[in-house]
Simulated scan of single mutants.
Amino acid sequence: MNGTTLHKTAAACAEELPGSELEHPFGPDWEVFKVRGKVFMLMTEVPGRPVVILKADPGEARALQEQYSHITPGYHMNKKHWITLEGGDGIDKELVRELVTESYRLVVAHLPKAQQPVDPHTYAYGTRASR
């Protein structure tokens, strides 16, 4: 998958998630997706290369980085809890959707129960919950 397709796929997935909002707090070059005011995905270009930055479980982040050369520690984020995804071989739409959804679930799980738009323990990509 190339970088343009990566951005389109990630944005489409994020927009479908309940309570997801797109903001540009760092200027027009950064697309920041939030749920209830908390960031779960950032998209930008790092010297001309489109990237998607996502929250990840630390153990899962390490495993993903070992498995995929196009997944690296989070750009300008906590390297333990965030990953950076670039387009390339082995990166497909299903993987992008899974990583975006997992990032969202991790953020939702830390919101107060009354603010959670979905139950993060049962929400999986493809389920349609009302926004």
Rank of each mutant, 00 (worst) to 15 (best):
3 G>T: 03
7 H>N: 10
9 T>M: 11
9 T>N: 08
11 A>E: 15
14 A>S: 06
14 A>R: 07
14 A>F: 07
15 E>A: 12
15 E>Y: 01
17 L>C: 06
17 L>Y: 04
19 G>W: 11
20 S>Q: 02
20 S>N: 03
21 E>G: 01
23 E>I: 10
25 P>L: 08
26 F>Y: 15
27 G>Q: 06
29 D>G: 14
30 W>P: 01
30 W>N: 06
34 K>V: 01
36 R>W: 05
37 G>V: 13
38 K>A: 13
39 V>A: 09
41 M>W: 04
42 L>E: 14
43 M>G: 08
43 M>H: 03
44 T>H: 07
45 E>H: 10
46 V>N: 11
47 P>F: 12
48 G>F: 07
48 G>A: 08
48 G>H: 07
50 P>W: 02
51 V>E: 04
52 V>K: 07
54 L>F: 04
54 L>H: 01
56 A>L: 07
56 A>K: 08
58 P>M: 13
59 G>Y: 11
59 G>A: 12
59 G>N: 13
60 E>K: 10
61 A>G: 12
61 A>F: 02
63 A>V: 11
64 L>R: 00
64 L>V: 01
65 Q>I: 06
66 E>W: 04
67 Q>M: 09
68 Y>R: 05
69 S>N: 04
69 S>Y: 01
71 I>M: 02
71 I>H: 02
72 T>K: 07
72 T>I: 06
72 T>M: 07
75 Y>D: 05
75 Y>E: 12
76 H>G: 07
77 M>W: 12
78 N>L: 14
81 H>T: 05
81 H>A: 11
83 I>G: 01
84 T>W: 08
85 L>N: 04
86 E>Q: 14
86 E>F: 00
87 G>F: 00
88 G>Y: 08
89 D>P: 01
89 D>K: 02
90 G>E: 04
90 G>Q: 03
91 I>K: 00
91 I>Q: 00
91 I>G: 00
92 D>P: 06
95 L>W: 08
96 V>S: 05
97 R>V: 04
97 R>D: 05
97 R>K: 15
99 L>F: 09
99 L>I: 09
100 V>M: 10
100 V>W: 12
100 V>K: 10
100 V>C: 14
101 T>E: 03
102 E>W: 03
102 E>A: 05
102 E>F: 03
103 S>C: 04
107 V>F: 06
108 V>S: 01
108 V>G: 05
109 A>S: 15
109 A>K: 13
110 H>P: 02
111 L>E: 11
112 P>W: 14
112 P>S: 13
114 A>S: 11
114 A>N: 11
115 Q>E: 15
116 Q>F: 00
116 Q>N: 05
118 V>F: 13
119 D>V: 09
120 P>F: 11
121 H>C: 10
124 A>K: 15
124 A>D: 14
126 G>L: 05
126 G>M: 05
129 A>P: 05
130 S>A: 15
131 R>H: 11
131 R>C: 12
